[in-house]
């Protein structure tokens, strides 16, 4: 009887855990991104801060009207970030420098191994083969873990909506353009061709070629080539990236690699704990039967006769 109960107990415990068991191919090794993935190279030396990309994004994605017009330069007074109402913003840096201001467009960088995707517990994010990181608002629960996880602070949340708040971010115009091989709206409108659209692999070569051809124009780094495992959006800059609001402390490993320490220990706990603690229980019980006895008045109804 006792043994049967014990086995039963273990079985129930085991089932409970099996339900919670979640480890499926976590360690994806080093994913270099889809070979056919597209991307955009942002040459900050070319950008003149006209904010046409913001306007184009606003119209293409049918976002609400902006607080102030898209040719209002006063927005540059503060550093801005993408929100649910503006998937891309242009910030101004180095205003005081004699070489003139440097403008930087900010949006979702479409990582090869997106942190948002790996942190999402309903798998709302997809990295498409075209390189876009898209989002399924139909399953989003609204935990906003993706916003915590995103190293570039790209996703914005629709806090204003009470009934259907969703995460909103740049999707590389996937639905309307990228899917058909067309460049995103911001690239198409850019008058200076500060944004170059193409295959990510080609863009990396192109970026290095620009640095090689005009080394006085650029710092020798392509931001996004390696950062957090590589991103579809790549940047060239005339000055150190840290001076343009880029996070230069990011590791070259994707964000998920930080989490692997924990994920790696999950199967260990799942397999060792039941055996360990059931074993300890048996040991403790044996000792008890060996004469220690237990607090007789403490065990509710089932006191020993």
């Amino acid at each position: 009887m006792k043994r049967r109960n014990f086995l039963k107990a273990c079985l129930i415990g085991g089932t409970t855990i099996a339900l919670g068991k979640t480890n499926k191919g976590w360690a994806s090794g080093s994913f270099e991104g889809y070979p056919e993935a597209m991307g955009v190279l942002v040459d900050t030396t070319r950008c003149i801060g006209c904010r046409s990309c913001e306007a184009a994004c606003n119209k293409e994605q049918k976002l609400p009207e902006p607080d102030t017009s898209f040719d209002d330069p006063s927005v540059f007074e503060h550093e801005r970030r993408p929100t649910s109402k503006a998937y891309t913003v242009v910030n101004r840096y180095q205003k005081e420098q004699p070489s003139g201001p440097v403008y930087r467009k900010v949006q979702c960088n479409h990582c090869n191994e997106p942190a948002c995707l790996t942190s999402c517990f309903v798998n709302a994010y997809t990295k498409t083969k075209e390189g876009a990181v898209i989002y399924n608002s139909k399953v989003c629960v609204g935990c906003r873990n993706c916003m915590i996880a995103c190293p570039f602070n790209a996703p914005g949340y629709d806090y204003d909506s009470a009934t259907n708040p969703i995460v909103k971010k740049c999707i590389l115009c996937y639905d309307t353009r990228l899917k058909y091989g067309k460049p995103p709206a911001c690239v198409e409108i850019c008058p200076q061709e500060a944004l170059t659209f193409g295959h990510r692999a080609d863009l990396i070569k192109l970026a290095h070629e620009r640095i090689r051809a005009t080394p006085e124009r650029y710092v020798d780094h392509v931001y996004g080539e390696k950062e957090v495992g590589g991103t579809s959006w790549l940047y060239l800059a005339p000055v150190g990236f840290d001076k343009l609001g880029f996070d230069t402390t990011l590791s070259n490993d994707p964000i998920i690699s930080n989490v692997k320490d924990f994920l790696g220990m999950v199967p260990m706990v799942l397999s060792i704990w039941p055996a360990l603690f059931s074993g300890i229980h048996l040991l403790a019980k044996h000792e008890e039967q060996g004469g220690h006895g237990h607090d007789t008045d403490s065990n509710q109804e089932d006191t020993k006769p």
Binding site: T118, C120, V122, V141, C143
Partner: peptide, 18 residues
């Protein structure tokens, strides 16, 4: 949508799923 990770859509690689 709280039950979604249990019944509708699974993101098993996420810590939050666990």
């Amino acid at each position: 949508r709280l039950p979604y990770p249990m019944v509708v859509s699974f993101g098993p690689a996420a810590v939050l799923f666990l």
